[in-house]
Computed example of a mutant assay.
Amino acid sequence: METSDQLALEVPIISARYARRLIHFMERRGVKRQAILAHAELPDAILENPDASISMAQVTSLLDRTEWLMTDERAPFQFGQELDLLSHGLLGFAVLGQENPRQLISMIVQYLRVGLPLMDMELSSSGTTFQIRLVDTWALGPLRPCLTKIYMGSIQRIAAQVCSHFEIQFDFGTALEPHAWMALASNCEFRFNAPVSQITMPLAGRPVQGDNAGLQFLLARNRNPAEERPRQADETVMQVRELIMSQPGRPCTTENVSRRLGMSTRTLRQHLASAGTSFRELRNSIREDFATLYLRDTNVSLESIAEKLGFSNQAGFTKAYRAWTGTTPGDVRRQSRKGE
């Protein structure tokens, strides 16, 4: 893999829990841990630390090794299928709190971008059909098919809560017959040598809440106290939240959102007011959720977080976050490092 910024490869960017789960997956397939870690550049101290993060260089060394040891080209997709909601940490808690299918799909994309930033994703929709296209931003080279399969398997597993059928396209080939891939998921149609790698899924209904739905820590739950709203107002709030989540930075303004919804800013404000909220409240709630996720589950710098969320500088972000939560971003990050 080649990149113009070699330093970026050494920055810890994802939780080591993904490495641990991959090693356990391989061990269940009869591959010894020592064989996996022989050339993976992952010391035991990192793997045994529940709060540790690993760099892109360590990710690629581990994937290089495990892919070489895999005897089935479907194994990466199967590993992805094992990455259910709670496997993604804060993503799981956030998605468990969503009762709207459209919000759930949008959440999957936004939180995977933060918690597992090894590939980017482009979300688009037409009616009730959604498409997620994977984008290689790290110049992964030979490892791209392996990582693509992992992402597709996990997206399929999570989105199965609200989608009953999937069309999965890969921009690379396969040596297996179609029925071999169909055996992984009867509700999936697999296509290879496609122009792009993407997953298409029509919504089938509402998420099925599990026993863990009552967890108190649901990061992305809409905290507005008005639980019962008129359907039209609730739909407007949902659409605005979805647009804000897709682009929470500086371009996310009342004017831009109202234009994308095909209404005037005055009409948008009236709809939100009738729902008991405002654009500012919705945007700040989402900004707070994303900021907390970045602070607790990533090593992204405070300056970068501020920029991603639309603040002109770190000081402005710190002031806003303290107003939202009563604590500072630095305090949240320090507490997370102590395992609190």
Rank of each mutant, 00 (worst) to 15 (best):
A8H: 00
V11N: 01
V11T: 09
I13T: 12
I14T: 15
I14A: 13
A19H: 08
I23L: 08
H24G: 05
H24I: 03
E27A: 10
E27N: 13
R28F: 02
Q34R: 15
L42W: 04
P43F: 00
L47Q: 06
M56Q: 08
V59C: 15
S61M: 04
L62T: 04
D64S: 09
D64H: 08
T66D: 06
L69C: 09
D72V: 04
R74N: 00
A75Y: 04
G80R: 09
Q81H: 07
Q81D: 01
D84N: 09
L85F: 10
L85D: 12
L86R: 10
S87K: 07
G89K: 12
F93P: 00
G97W: 06
Q98A: 03
P101M: 03
R102W: 01
L104I: 03
L104W: 00
S106C: 10
S106K: 11
M107G: 13
I108A: 03
I108Y: 02
V109K: 15
Q110G: 12
V114Y: 07
V114N: 08
S126Y: 09
G127K: 11
Q131I: 03
R133F: 00
D136L: 07
L140P: 02
C146R: 10
L147P: 03
T148Q: 11
T148P: 01
M152N: 04
I155D: 08
R157P: 02
A160Y: 06
Q161W: 02
Q161D: 12
Q169T: 08
D171H: 10
F172A: 07
T174P: 03
A175H: 14
A180F: 07
L184E: 15
A185Y: 05
S186C: 06
C188G: 04
C188N: 08
V196H: 14
A204N: 13
N212A: 14
N212F: 14
A213T: 11
R221T: 08
N222W: 11
N222D: 15
R229I: 07
P230E: 13
P230W: 13
R231E: 11
Q232F: 05
M238D: 06
M238Q: 12
E242I: 14
I244N: 09
M245V: 11
S246L: 10
S246R: 14
S246K: 13
R250K: 15
R250V: 12
R250T: 14
N256W: 02
R259N: 15
R259V: 02
G262A: 07
S264W: 01
S264Q: 01
T265R: 15
R266E: 11
T267S: 11
H271Y: 15
A273S: 14
A273H: 12
S274Q: 15
E281A: 12
S285E: 15
R287W: 03
A291P: 04
T292F: 09
D297L: 00
K308C: 02
G310D: 07
F311C: 02
G316F: 02
G316H: 08
T318N: 12
Y321R: 01
Y321H: 06
R322K: 15
A323D: 14
T325H: 08
T325F: 01
T327S: 06
V332T: 13
E340I: 11
